[in-house]
Design a protein around this nucleic acid. Structure first.
Length: 269
DNA sequence: CGCACCCCCTGCCGGC
DNA sequence: TGCCGGCAGGGGGTGC
């Protein structure tokens, strides 16, 4: 579910927990993408949140003492800040009882999400996380280097977290539409002009989506339970058979590597 | 290296 | 009405 804009929206919505201590840790279901370590609760207990960072689709909760709580929402995960006394719901796997009485709850029906506590340098999954597409340091030249010589479809490259971190299926489709490039085009066949447009589209689409609070396709909510609104602005994602807003042609859907791509054959080359 | 497939898991939707 | 297959925003692994 959540891609960079949704994860960033969750991060912003959870900032009020910074400064709060965890008074109790309730593990109701340890079997996530990876099973929670046996000492997970003990390591979290009595720690204080000092900051919340994001890398790609990962959230990093900085704790006093130097440890980090790493969180990934998978396809269906949510982190919810709930009022004191909230009863556990179905698929509430971990509930952190905060010093002010509120709860920080990890809910994830499909259990593709991840929670892990430790030193950031020890997190193997972060070694596969590339630069953030919105970072000032990530230049158009970096982007061009990424495309150069690669035979795989440009959409796969956008979604490869090692090259650029945070883009998933929805936003890859959307930025390719904005840039006028077909998803299946080989990365090395993307012209200089197209690459410039894609770089700009990448930043524009992600920035706009964050401003709109992300896309709530089915069940996405931020930490306060609020939906996003960017789904109302999606040009191609999940619009197969519908008319292109730009030219009126019918939006197509094709499946590559098990994932659906949506595009307008008229507007995208 | 790239890719075509698998897997993990639950929920929902459409067709029969 | 109920059952079944397909599909879903994630990542990871294998074998070719």
């Amino acid at each position: 579910m959540p891609e960079l804009p949704e994860v960033e929206t969750v991060r912003l919505s959870l900032l009020p927990i910074v400064g709060l201590r965890i008074d109790a840790v309730e593990v109701r279901e340890p079997r996530l993408r990876r099973r929670l370590a046996h000492n997970f609760a003990a390591q979290l207990n009595r720690r204080t949140f000092e900051a919340i960072d994001r890398r790609g689709k990962y959230l990093l909760f900085r704790l006093d003492g130097g440890d980090t709580l790493l969180a990934h929402l998978g396809m269906s995960g949510a982190l919810l800040l709930q009022p004191a006394g909230t009863a556990p719901q179905l698929h509430d796997h971990v509930r952190l009882h905060l010093a002010d009485g509120r709860l920080l709850t990890f809910n994830d029906p499909r259990r593709f999400g991840l929670l892990q506590i430790g030193r950031e340098a020890d997190f193997a999954e972060l070694r596969r996380v590339g630069p953030d597409p919105l970072a000032r340091e990530f230049t158009v030249d970096d982007f061009l280097r990424l495309l150069r010589g690669r035979k795989k479809p440009v959409k796969n490259l956008l979604m490869d977290q090692q090259g650029i971190a945070g883009i998933g299926n929805i936003y890859a489709n959307e930025m390719l539409f904005v840039a006028g490039i077909r998803p299946a085009r080989q990365a090395r066949r993307v012209t200089r002009d197209q690459a410039d447009r894609l770089y700009e589209a990448m930043r524009a689409v992600l920035t706009r989506a964050i401003q709109r609070g992300g896309s709530s396709i089915s069940d996405y909510r931020d930490g306060e339970g609020r939906t996003g609104y960017f789904q109302l602005e999606l040009a191609v994602y999940d619009r197969a058979g519908a008319p292109c807003h730009r030219c009126g042609a019918t939006i197509k859907r094709v499946v590559h590597a098990g994932r659906s791509s949506f595009y307008c054959a008229q507007c995208q080359k």
